[in-house]
Every structure is written in C-alpha cells, then in structure tokens.
Design a protein around this nucleic acid. Structure first.
Lengths: 143, 143
DNA sequence: GATTGACAGTTCTAAAATAGAACTTTAGGT
DNA sequence: ACCTAAAGTTCTATTTTAGAACTGTCAATC
C-alpha cells in the first residue's frame, strides 16, 4: 500500500500516514525497510529541521507492473455496484486503459494455462531435507 | 507464496507445506482464508479418509499477471551471478519469454511516468477525519 | 514570549499473528 | 504390532502490529 501511494506521487511521511491510516511506528519501519531494500531513496527536501521524502528508485519503479496488476485485479474482483475505484489514463495515447500482460516473444495475451515454468540457472536448490535419510525403508536399513 | 505454488500446479496441503517451509498452522489458516475469499476452491479427491486439494477459481486464476510480474521482478532484481531462478515457456509460441505489460488501447509498453490515475466511480470516500472538529481554534471554543 | 501547528519520527503497552514442535485421525502397508 | 501418509489441530514462546502519547525543530500566530 505504501508503494501504491508512491506511484500516486505521494512522497512524505505524513502523506503516507494520513492516506493509509497505518500506525506511524509501522510506517517508519516499512519505509526503513524499503530504503534498505533499495526500492525507495530517502532524500532531504529541507534542511533544519531536516525533512526527508521517499522516492522510488529504478528498482522501485520496476514494481509498477505488479502494482498495476493488483489494482486491475481489484477493479475486476473487488468492485461493488458503483464501478471501478481507480481509472488509468495513458498519457501517450490519451485513453483510459486496462493493463494487459503479453508474451514478449509473440505478443499474445498471457494466461496461466499456456505457460510452462522451468527452473532457471539461478534456481535455489531444494532445501536440505528435514528428514534427509529416506533410510527408513527397510531395504535401506541394512546398508 | 502459496499462490505461486498453486500456479506451479501444487494443490495439496503437504505439497505446500514442504515446498514453502511455512508452519502447518499458518498454512491451514491461509488456505481457509483463500477459500473464504473465493481465490481457491477446496475439493475432495478422496473419500475416507477425506482428503482435499486446493485449486484456483477463476478469481484466483486472474491473479496470474500479479504472480508473473512479481516473478519477473525477482528475475531482474533478486538474481545472483548464476542467472534467473525461474524461466517461462509460452506453449502457444514455443519460446522462452518475459511478461510484458502494455496499454490495452494502444498496445505500447506501460511505464509509471506515462500513466495518470483518476478516482473512478467506485472510489472509496476519504476517511472521516480523526480530528473532524478543528474546533481547537480559540475562535471555535466559545461556541 | 508563550502557544500552536507542521513534520518526521520515537517510545511505550496491549493485542494479534507467527514460529516451532508435538499430537490427532483415518487408512494402507509390512 | 508398528510405520507411514495426509490433512489438519493444539500447545507455548516469540515477533509483529495496533494504538496512543511523546520528542525535537522550526515557522507562524496570539
């Protein structure tokens, strides 16, 4: 939710706090974490008293498709009779739009059933089993 | 993470538990919640002893773009030298791909700076202020 | 010149949520 | 008889979060 607000151009502590209703304590922690993760940058906008604002790094900006798809899901599945809570306008083409996820190779819209997943080179290994010895099988016992 | 596993075709309690390492208690709660929210359906696959599996509803399947974009973000920003943890193959075109989010109207890839957000008809009203009475101003006190 | 208000936090305690581990139930296998 | 599998439940200990008040620095106001 903090990130959603960031994409809505909110940048300051009080702004996040009042629009989210989150506790100040938690907000402070989350902001620290987001900065530590490199998603936000804490930049001073005023000296004495020192005041900071939080702005998205590139790593943070790259979260945009995630936020967009969440908002879109909400627009489809969490609506009441009144309609969508949030509309998006594409400045480049001037129209109200929905985000659409496509295949980078063929351009077709993606759906779960058409996709197969493979472990990549950076796949993390299966965790070392809690029961590493399947040695309980009688056949293994003797060995 | 439970949902990610769902999209990887995991459906059963033990399967989620062992691949996520989540506590069984928490897993049971989360699954209940996801069923309550209409994202998963709990369907018996065996009578006596009753055994259930959890499968995505349409509402759940519609979360796909969210999961995809999270995985993609991870592939870009959480990699070590080895490379991507997870690869996607598009069955329709046969190629390895990345998900790409575009504007439904003009087809151009989306980026945060090109989008303007408007409150829609279903926007929730601003919360009733905690300090509804700015009556602390002396001028109001007397009244 | 004392008070008020904005802003960005910090500090407390009480109330959830989660971790970690063992236990339960129904049934098949050996 | 004992073991295993599956899908949970139950328990205590630890962590997080909620909720509210407090701090410090400045500017503006009374």
């Amino acid at each position: 939710m903090i990130l959603r607000e960031c994409f809505l151009r909110k940048r300051r502590f009080e702004a996040f706090q009042s629009s989210l209703g989150i506790t100040r304590h938690l907000l402070a922690e989350r902001l620290k974490k987001l900065v530590r993760f490199g998603v936000l940058r804490r930049v001073p906008y005023m000296e004495s008293p020192k005041r900071y604002e939080y702005i998205l790094t590139q790593k943070g900006l790259d979260l945009y498709p995630i936020i967009m798809s969440i908002v879109h899901w909400g627009n489809v599945h969490m609506v009441d009779s009144r309609g969508k809570p949030l509309l998006h306008e594409h400045k480049s083409c001037g129209k109200m739009f929905d985000p659409l996820m496509i295949c980078s190779e063929c351009g077709e819209p993606l759906n779960a059933k058409e996709v197969h997943t493979h472990p990549g080179p950076g796949a993390r290994q299966a965790l070392p089993e809690k029961k590493p010895a399947p040695s309980k099988k009688r056949s293994d016992r003797a060995a």
